[in-house]
Amino acid sequence: MKKENIPNALTLVRIALIPVFILVLTLGHSLTAHLIAALIFAFASVTDYLDGYLARKWQVVTNFGKFADPMADKLLVMSAFIMLIELKMAPAWIVAVIICRELAVTGLRLLLVETGGTVLAAAMPGKIKTFTQMFAIIFLLLHWTLLGQILLYTALIFTIYSGYDYFKGSAYLFKDTFK
């Protein structure tokens, strides 16, 4: 495989791991199944970092990667949070806030590109949000409940704050909305 294709291949691996992750949690209700799911999720999360790092390092950023990488991240995290609701490891209201924010920011990004070609890059609060979400999921699956809950509520705070921050910075798009 050419090195140009490795970042995109990692993204595809992450997407392919989502149904495996869900299947493990659906079929297995033991601590072992949760451990395996946590390892799958952790591996998939590492591919998120690695594909972006390699694409930038090798200067092989592609349109597929620009689309699929953030989509894979959202699909992975949202699937995990929904499964955590099913397992009674995360409150549905927190997951609803997280998913709504993700959809709203994704819509904002599309609007920004459509109206002026502006790409809304991830700011530090958004990166902290992603980091805390991923670690909250891993620790909750490992049954490290206290640490997982602390990270989950931290993720919630950064989810809300980063969403607010993105919309505040893009408020000019909506200035004529209620005239």
Rank of each mutant, 00 (worst) to 15 (best):
S170Y: 12
I94D: 10
V105Q: 04
V46N: 06
V61N: 13
V13S: 05
Y166Q: 13
K74H: 08
G126F: 07
L31F: 13
L152D: 04
V97T: 05
F135G: 00
T177V: 02
T130Y: 07
L27G: 06
Y153D: 09
T145V: 08
A123E: 15
G163C: 08
A92G: 08
I98S: 04
A80E: 00
A92L: 13
I6W: 06
L103K: 01
G117D: 11
I99M: 11
A136K: 10
L76D: 04
A37P: 01
L76K: 03
Y172S: 14
A33C: 00
S162A: 01
G52S: 03
K127G: 01
R14Y: 10
S30A: 04
E4F: 10
M124K: 05
L17F: 14
I138A: 07
A72R: 04
K175Y: 13
A72V: 05
D48G: 06
A90S: 11
M134I: 10
V24E: 05
H143W: 07
G126I: 01
L112C: 15
L39V: 13
I99D: 05
L50R: 01
P91E: 13
I94P: 03
I160Q: 10
G107C: 04
D176N: 14
M1D: 05
I36Q: 03
T106V: 01
L10G: 10
T130A: 09
A90C: 06
K129I: 00
A92E: 10
H34T: 09
I137P: 02
G148S: 05
K88Q: 11
F167A: 01
F174K: 12
V77Y: 01
I157N: 05
I138W: 06
P7M: 03
V119P: 15
R56S: 10
G52I: 01
T159P: 03
K179F: 04
V61G: 08
F21K: 06
S30Y: 08
K129L: 00
V61Q: 15
A37Y: 00
I160K: 09
F43T: 15
L152W: 06
L35D: 13
V105I: 03
A9E: 06
F41D: 12
A37S: 03
R109C: 07
D51V: 14
K168Q: 14
I18G: 02
I128A: 00
D73A: 02
V119Q: 15
